[in-house]
Write a protein that binds this DNA or RNA. Structure first.
Lengths: 306, 306
DNA sequence: AGCCATACGTCAGGAAAACGCAAACATGAC
DNA sequence: GTCATGTTTGCGTTTTCCTGACGTATGGCT
């Protein structure tokens, strides 16, 4: 039997707060006790360990080597305890807060909300639009729907939903379509394609996956977000590049074309949840998202042989 | 500021023990207190949460849904706290315990120990041979050297050292060498190659990476471990398959040949450490292993174009 | 059915831990 | 030197936690 002992937990919590805030007083305020109490706990922990965790220099303190190591090892654990407890206290009766980038929200999630409400009627969902730099802290979130490539942060619990596939799309009303129709994918290399600031590598990724020598040389108009990019493509302004599910509806309706198919990228559609015990609502949502994405991928044209 | 609260920690520790052991009395024994104390803590925690964590049925208890979720969310965190504390208490003065499979130990680590001692003289290293099913619990270990493909367990902190490359090797004394010399790799498909029980997929992986239609059809002699497999190859008994670094010395000395080069696999050479604060000894060891592996890979012939 | 062994719950009193308060101490700024 | 800031220390008090003994519920055994 593993007879491993835990350190004095309250002292450890005090240490974690002090190490994080770099101050006894600040930690004391956070824990609603006096600084004297904290100081005492620190001493206790250092005695239990047998060597100092901080180097004192009169009025300030700084983590020692041992202290740094302990802080690195414990802060994540405490975070997980906090998350887990908070998630449980909030309870499954509270709405499930799902974070997701604005573009995904507008172009994919919202059009499918009615289906979601029908398939998972008991799920109370609150949506929260995150900034596009897709590294949310997921602090207040119960989950986040993301497009991201591994490796993912260790403090996420990740459910892979589907591989990402991206491809060039354009409106049949686009003036250049007459010129491009019937051409192979490499014809795009000479096209002034549309691109987005939130994902500058998209064309390069697509080109390398498609086996083309490089991304389109001339860069056409740029847009701040994928959402605007797709609106521009729908308006016939040029050739955009987008993940298949985001344009599945437009392809089905004929508003957009994807003559060169879609190419897989290293990224994945994922549902990231905090590392608490598996929330049954998250599991249900993940399963639904997976089904929904699979359907969209199926409806999108398969990868075109370049 | 995130004003998130932690649950009563001592009560949570009691809960974790009870949930793990499925018994109040067993948990009480583990924590060196009476069952009454545990029972009280459980009640306290349930009151703080506002709903029961266990379903009582007279003389036994079982986790409720909420209890299961809390246990999933907290057990890992407590494990990390235990690990972190234990690692720090043991101290950097204690020897670094490195686990690794017997084959790796015998054929790669041990021959390089003298160089390791010269390059990292202050590192006290204890070696521990693990069973070949490469999923050690790394409970008592400070680290483990492994060949494994992602995804890795979430409770490991993984440092990738090098991609794995495997390839067919044989002794120049092997009777079939005359027949094979100069032939392309696909000639091996008709060869009765040697294989190992600890890695039955090796030939298949190699064949698919090399773009061959399938693994060698006829299976020659099998061996329980890679170590014996390589001894057999050295003895001229046939064609074995092995990771490049494990045969680097033999290739350099001419005891083995690798006429068809080595192919990358999804696996990696990794140093897995428990999720405590980064141990400086582990960092130093990882850096050294990385250098050493890079040198071995360089000395091995590059991937042969099949 | 009656009895015993097992396992959890509860309560009172006492031990131990943690706390608040206030004074002491250390350092850097002025 | 004096003040402002921030940590440590000593002591009396409050809070928490534990022990130990007893009560209750269940299942196996005769």
């Amino acid at each position: 039997m593993t007879e491993r002992e835990l350190p004095p937990l309250n002292a450890l919590r005090a240490f974690e707060a002090v190490a994080r805030r770099q101050s006894v007083s600040a930690a004391a305020a956070e824990l609603h006790v006096t600084h004297g109490a904290i100081s005492r706990q620190l001493r206790l922990l250092e005695e239990a360990l047998g060597r100092p965790l901080f180097t004192r220099q009169g009025r300030g303190l700084q983590l020692s080597a041992a202290g740094t190591q302990l802080h690195e090892g414990t802060s994540a654990a405490f975070g997980q305890l906090r998350d887990s407890w908070a998630g449980l206290r909030r309870g499954s009766s509270a709405p499930f807060v799902l974070g997701c980038s604005g573009s995904l929200l507008a172009r994919w999630v919202i059009p499918r909300l009615d289906r979601l409400a029908r398939d998972l009627p008991e799920l109370q969902l609150h949506l929260s639009a995150q900034e596009d730099p897709l590294t949310p802290a997921l602090g207040e979130l119960d989950g986040a729907l993301l497009l991201a490539a591994p490796p993912w942060p260790a403090n996420w619990q990740v459910t892979e939903l589907a591989p990402e596939r991206i491809g060039p799309v354009l409106s049949p009303r686009y003036a250049g379509w007459a010129r491009l129709a019937g051409q192979p994918a490499r014809a795009l290399l000479d096209e002034a394609v549309l691109h987005t600031a939130s994902r500058p590598q998209a064309w390069r990724d697509w080109a390398s996956a498609a086996g083309l020598p490089g991304p389109p040389a001339a860069s056409g108009q740029g847009f701040p977000h994928l959402y605007y990019l797709l609106e521009a493509a729908l308006a016939g302004l040029g050739v955009a590049i987008a993940p298949a599910p985001l344009v599945a509806d437009d392809l089905a309706a004929g508003r957009l074309l994807a003559p060169w198919g879609f190419q897989p990228t290293p990224a994945r559609w994922i549902l990231a949840t905090p590392q608490r015990g598996r929330d049954p609502r998250a599991s249900a949502l993940a399963a639904w998202l997976q089904r929904e994405l699979a359907a969209d991928e199926k409806s999108a044209p398969l990868t075109d042989s370049a």
